[in-house]
Design a protein around this nucleic acid. Structure first.
Lengths: 150, 150
DNA sequence: GGTCATCCCGTTGACGCCCATAGTGCCCCA
DNA sequence: TGGGGCACTATGGGCGTCAACGGGATGACC
């Protein structure tokens, strides 16, 4: 249905460091009864993975599958809790851009929101454009080789 | 939902050796009725594991489950009781940085608080940054090997 | 007397809450 | 079919509250 994060948009950060979350994304989260978002560093790219707080619940379940005395469980907990944050939505549907977000993404004045299905991502617009070009190129080469890979 | 320690923050130690515990972390502990924290040396890293006094209760239960004849029980008891300490929160939500904390973490002027779910950690900020980078690198390699997918 | 913990207060900046406005798409109706 | 108005989004800004932080005053203990 319409419960997937789809499409992208770029919004401006105001003088107080706030930015509007695209209304379409907000609606999905708020329909589940949340008034805040959960954001965590992406591992591979200078971006943040964002969703409702239920996104964290999924990660927590994933951690529980690991042996709690091994390093992997510790590492995962470190990432999802230490490198994650709740972003409060104000009543106009805006969040304030934190230092963590700027460090991770290089964001300064504008933010790109990109739907990714069950979550969405936050990017610095120019870095997103460069990354998107790389992705398209990889897919082009894949097709040229006749490969079929998701 | 909101009863877990999440996100991280860095605060400054004042001339009297005090530092503010992030309000969000305080709220979690105080909601359980405590006005002090319990801290113990982390096993693997130059940091302290901190939580409400109920964190100690959890450790005590684990000690009881061990056969008191075995060395493990003795070691655990030694660590959690001998190397643990209670940190009193003053009425502004600050704690005093003890010599034990400085020795264990290398802290001098600033303290990083890192949420870890059911507890949080205290780090020297630069050591934390280095450790976090290592953690992310391990997780990247784990994912590259197909070991885990969020 | 000196050190240290505790209590209490003031300042400052960040953040939440509230309202205002401009731009835009859409619908309805003349 | 074209125009007016409604609905909604993105954005700006005022203002009160609170967290982080600095520092004075008091009392206990060595």
């Amino acid at each position: 249905m319409m419960d997937r994060f789809l499409s992208s948009a770029t919004n401006r950060i105001d003088a107080k460091g706030r930015v509007s979350v695209p209304a379409h994304f907000r609606a999905i989260v708020q329909k589940r009864g949340y008034d805040q978002l959960y954001a965590v560093r992406s591992l591979e790219t200078p971006s943040l993975d964002v969703g409702g707080p239920d996104l964290l619940d999924g990660f927590a379940k994933r951690i529980e599958q690991e042996d709690p005395f091994l390093q992997t469980a510790d590492d995962m907990s470190f990432l999802y809790y230490g490198d994650g944050a709740f972003l409060k939505l104000d009543q106009d549907g805006r969040i304030t851009v934190t230092e963590l977000m700027r460090e991770q993404t290089g964001i300064t004045t504008d933010i790109a929101f990109v739907g990714r299905g069950h979550f969405f991502q936050i990017w610095e617009p120019e870095r997103l454009a460069a990354h998107a070009a790389q992705v398209r190129e990889r897919l082009r080469q894949l097709r040229a080789r006749g490969g079929a890979q998701p």
